[in-house]
Design a binder for these strands. Structure first.
Lengths: 152, 152
DNA sequence: TTGGGTGCAAAGGCTTTGCATGTGA
DNA sequence: TCACATGCAAAGCCTTTGCACCCAA
């Protein structure tokens, strides 16, 4: 798990950037919550518990940095906040993301992996002459628990 | 094509809302650009040519109304603007959208329809107990023309 | 007539930026 | 030492809201 941290430090050095306490804490915070999808404000709240003096601007700047380095992924649920999650391990070199199931009732976000999209991409590539390099899939609906709570 | 307009007028009356010049012009503007994905500001600029006195707030309010009535679709390209397009004709009762191909080079947005997603949805429904009611798919890559311009 | 609609300007709310100070290498 | 990083507050920017006036029905 601290694999990401090593990678982060390496990438920072490579770019002539500095390894600061704040940057490490922010990455750790995200690593400790692998299945959550936190807003900048939520990350800020978590991080403040470790380092009360940190500024929200630093959170925003670090998030942006982590995102550029592909260590975290963005997720936009169209509710006015951009959310972030630690990048999921990839054993190949692709930048393909996993996908999201968003419950319209409780708002929970679940993730899934499916390689059917690869087939779709090939099809698009052939039929429309469009070279796909990345994709994003969001499925909206009702999760198991919410279906039970509100049957019908 | 003015089918949407009739539908709009009907829905407005049904809800006790009024058919105003502004509302009609805004819908017409979107109908006249079926393959574009306009921001509120862009819609405002177009609409001002028909009615220079219109206010940006009215555009925002009408867009929201049209969106709630499912006459237009939202599209978020994560560039800080929400975009809108006239709803594409559906001969069934589903709310499924078409999908988008977004060129990372020229920024153009292309649309495509593919029913493979239905299969994916069924699969998710079975394997994860998640009842899918809507979906959104975005494929990022390079369009035909940009591939020609920048071969590699 | 009258309740919804519009225009304008101001306010909101998330995110970015400027600047003086702090700090890792 | 010194360039990069941080904190704070201010500014940006898209969007929403308050309010007085306007106009479909």
């Amino acid at each position: 798990m601290p694999e990401n941290q090593e990678r982060f430090k390496m990438l920072l050095k490579q770019k002539g950037l500095k390894v600061t306490t704040q940057r490490i804490i922010i990455l750790e915070t995200l690593e400790n919550r692998p299945d959550e999808h936190l807003t900048a404000e939520e990350i800020y709240e978590c991080v403040k518990q470790e380092n009360p003096d940190i500024g929200l601007a630093t959170v925003y700047r670090t998030i942006q940095l982590l995102s550029e380095l592909n260590l975290i992924d963005k997720l936009n649920l169209e509710d006015g906040y951009v959310r972030y999650e630690i990048g999921h391990q990839r054993n190949d070199a692709t930048t393909h993301h996993h996908h999201h199931l968003i419950c319209l009732d409780c708002g929970n976000v679940f993730t899934f992996q499916d390689d059917m999209l690869e087939t779709l991409e090939t099809r698009i590539q052939d039929s429309m002459n469009f070279k796909v390099v990345d994709h994003e899939v969001k499925l909206y609906g009702y999760c198991k628990d919410c279906q039970k709570k509100n049957p019908k």
